[in-house]
Design a protein around this nucleic acid. Structure first.
Length: 430
RNA sequence: GGAGAGGUACCGAAGUGGUCAUAACGGGACCGCCUCGAAAGCGGUUUGGGGGAUAAUCUCUCUCACGUGGGUUCGAAUCCCACCCUCUCCGCCA
C-alpha cells in the first residue's frame, strides 16, 4: 500500500511512476479526491464528538446535583444522531479509499529501467555458458518418463492437468534439493528455518498484496476464509504482521520450504508439458525484514544467496533486472535469476528476488522502533526464491544429460543422495 | 463435535453505566541517583492510529481504539445481539 500522505504531496511522481508501469491513472485521481473528502468529514465529525464528550460529562455532574437534564438530553440526542450519520459517511469514504489504495501498485525504484515487457529486461550478468552437447538434448519430461521418475499420466488421473507425480529416485531428488537448499541458507547464509502453515487467511493474503487484486490466481478452500499459499512469502512475511519489532533485532532472515499452489489463470496453452508450470510446486523461499536504509544492500545479498545455489549445482544462469512494465504489483525492484534450459534452448526464470520497500509493511503493519522510545517506522520487506525446486530438477536433468542416455548428479548434491554420481534408465525404485 | 473459562498497555492483571484509558496494582524495559564497578535501594520515563494549528520530523490541540462488528443510552470496557480467536476438560483422531 502506498502512503496516502506521499500521494497527496507528490501526485506528479506517483503519476509518472504509474505511467511507466503501463497503468491507468484514473484510480489515482479517485484516491486523491476521496482523501480530501475524508479529511473534511473528519473535521466535522470530531467537532461533534468533542461537544458530546464535554456535554455528557456536564450532564453527569448536573444529574448528581439534582438539576433537570431533560432539555439538554434532548439536544444531545440530536448531536448523537448527527455523529452517527457522519460516522457512517466517514466509514464509507474510508472503506472506499482503502479499497482503492489496495489496488494501487508500488512505485518502481528510480534505478529500475523503463520498459514495457519481459523482452526489455536488461541482463545484469551471466554465470557460466550454455551447456554444449554433441547430440540433441532431450526435454526433462521425456528423460523423467524414460527413467520412470516422473509420471504425468498418474497425476492427471489423480488430480488433473498441471500436476506432477514423482516416483522413486525422482521423489528422492526433489527431497534432496529441498534439504540441500535449506542447509545452505541456514548454515552458510544465516537464515532461520521456518515451516509455516500452507493455508492462510485473507488478512495475510492482503498483507503481502495477493488480495484483493489477484484473487483469480489463488485456490480458496470452500466455505472457509482459507487460501492455499501461492508462495511461502505469504505466511512467512505475515509472521510479524501487526507487530512492532526492535531495531536491534533487524535484519531478520527467514527461509522456508513450502509447496506453492497457483491457479495459473491466463496461462492456458503455455508450458503445457512437464514441470515448468504447475498448479502445485515446491519452493525454498528467502524472506528478509530490514531497516529502510539497508534494504537495497540486502537485496544484493539476497540475490547472491539465491545465485549461490546454482553455482554450487554448477548450472549456467543469468540475472536480469525487471523493467518497469514487467515489475510485479508489490515490488519496487526485482531481479530474476534465469537458469539455462538446454531443451528449450533458452534461459528460464528459476528465482525472483524483490525489494518491496514499505509496501507490504504498510499493508501488514510491520514496524520497528530504532530505540525503545523512538517512533515506530515501517520495515522494508524482501523475498526471493532460493530456489524453485521443480525447475531446478528440470535444469539438472537437461543440463546433466549424457549422450548414452544417463544423467549425472551435481557434486554438491551427491551427499544428499548416498553419493550417487550418475543415474541410468530405467532406474529401480529405491 | 460437546461443556466451561477468557480476550484491557511490552507481560500479568484490576476496573461491571459518568469522578482521569498516557488504564489501579505487580513485573519487565529504559534514564538518573547511589557505587571503584555491579546488585540491592531510591526517583523518574514507558500504547498506538487519524485529524487540525504551525515554516517545522519541535510544540500545542482534538479525536478514535478495552478481540471484531452492530444495538441500547445524554454518556458503554461495563448492558444487549452476532461473529472471531485463545485456553481447560470430554469425545474423536495422524
Amino acid at each position: 500500500m502506498l502512503n496516502i500522505k506521499f500521494i497527496r504531496e507528490n501526485s506528479d511522481k506517483a503519476r509518472t511512476a504509474f505511467r511507466s508501469r503501463g497503468m491507468a491513472e484514473n484510480l489515482l485521481d479517485e484516491v486523491i479526491s476521496l482523501d480530501e473528502r475524508r479529511r473534511a468529514i473528519i473535521v466535522e465529525l470530531e467537532e461533534g464528538q468533542h461537544l458530546r464528550n464535554t456535554t455528557s460529562s456536564q450532564i453527569g455532574q448536573l444529574k448528581k446535583e439534582g438539576t433537570d437534564i431533560a432539555e439538554l438530553s434532548q439536544e444531545m440526542r440530536q448531536v448523537g444522531e448527527k455523529i452517527k450519520e457522519l460516522e457512517k459517511e466517514s466509514k464509507e469514504v474510508e472503506d472506499n479509499l482503502n479499497q482503492k489504495l489496495l489496488l494501487l501498485p508500488n512505485l518502481p525504484h528510480p534505478d529500475v529501467p523503463y520498459g514495457q515487457t519481459g523482452e526489455d529486461n536488461p541482463v545484469v550478468h551471466v554465470w557460466g555458458a550454455p551447456t554444449k552437447f554433441s547430440f540433441e538434448p532431450k526435454p526433462h519430461f521425456e528423460l523423467g518418463e524414460n527413467f520412470g521418475i516422473l509420471d504425468f499420466e498418474a497425476s492427471a488421473k489423480i488430480t488433473g492437468a498441471r500436476f506432477a507425480l514423482y516416483k522413486g529416485f525422482g521423489a528422492r531428488l526433489e527431497r534432496a534439493l529441498i534439504n540441500f537448499m535449506l542447509d545452505l541458507h541456514t548454515k552458510e547464509h544465516g537464515y532461520q528455518e521456518i515451516l509455516p502453515p500452507f493455508m492462510v487467511n485473507s488478512a495475510a493474503m492482503t498483507g503481502t498484496g495477493q488480495l484483493p487484486k489477484f484473487k483469480e490466481d489463488l485456490f480458496k478452500c470452500e466455505s472457509t476464509d482459507y487460501y492455499l499459499i501461492p508462495t511461502a512469502e505469504v505466511p512467512v512475511t505475515n509472521i510479524h504482521r501487526e507487530e512492532i519489532l526492535r531495531g536491534d533485532d533487524l535484519p531478520i532472515y527467514y527461509t522456508a520450504y513450502t509447496p506453492c499452489f497457483r491457479a495459473e489463470a491466463g496461462a492456458y496453452g503455455k508450458d503445457t508439458r512437464g514441470l515448468i508450470r504447475q498448479h502445485q510446486f515446491n519452493k525454498v523461499e528467502l524472506v528478509k525484514f530490514t531497516k529502510p536504509e539497508d534494504s537495497y544492500a540486502e537485496l544484493e545479498r539476497l540475490l547472491n544467496d539465491a545465485e549461490e545455489v546454482l553455482k554450487k549445482l554448477e548450472i549456467p544462469y543469468r540475472v536480469v533486472v525487471l523493467c518497469t512494465g514487467d515489475l510485479g504489483f508489490a515490488s519496487a525492484k526485482t531481479y530474476d535469476i534465469e537458469a539455462w534450459m538446454p531443451a528449450s534452448g533458452g534461459y528460464r526464470e528459476i528465482s525472483s528476488c524483490s525489494n518491496f520497500e514499505d509496501f507490504q509493511a504498510r499493508r501488514a503493519m510491520i514496524r520497528f522502533k530504532r530505540t525503545p522510545d523512538s517512533k515506530p517506522e515501517f520495515v522494508h520487506t524482501l523475498n526471493g526464491s532460493g530456489l524453485a525446486i521443480g525447475r531446478t530438477v528440470v535444469a539438472i536433468l537437461e543440463n546433466y544429460q549424457l549422450e548414452d542416455g544417463r544423467v549425472a548428479i551435481p557434486k554438491a548434491l551427491q551427499p544428499y543422495l548416498d553419493g550417487i554420481e550418475i543415474i541410468c534408465p530405467p532406474i529401480k525404485p529405491i
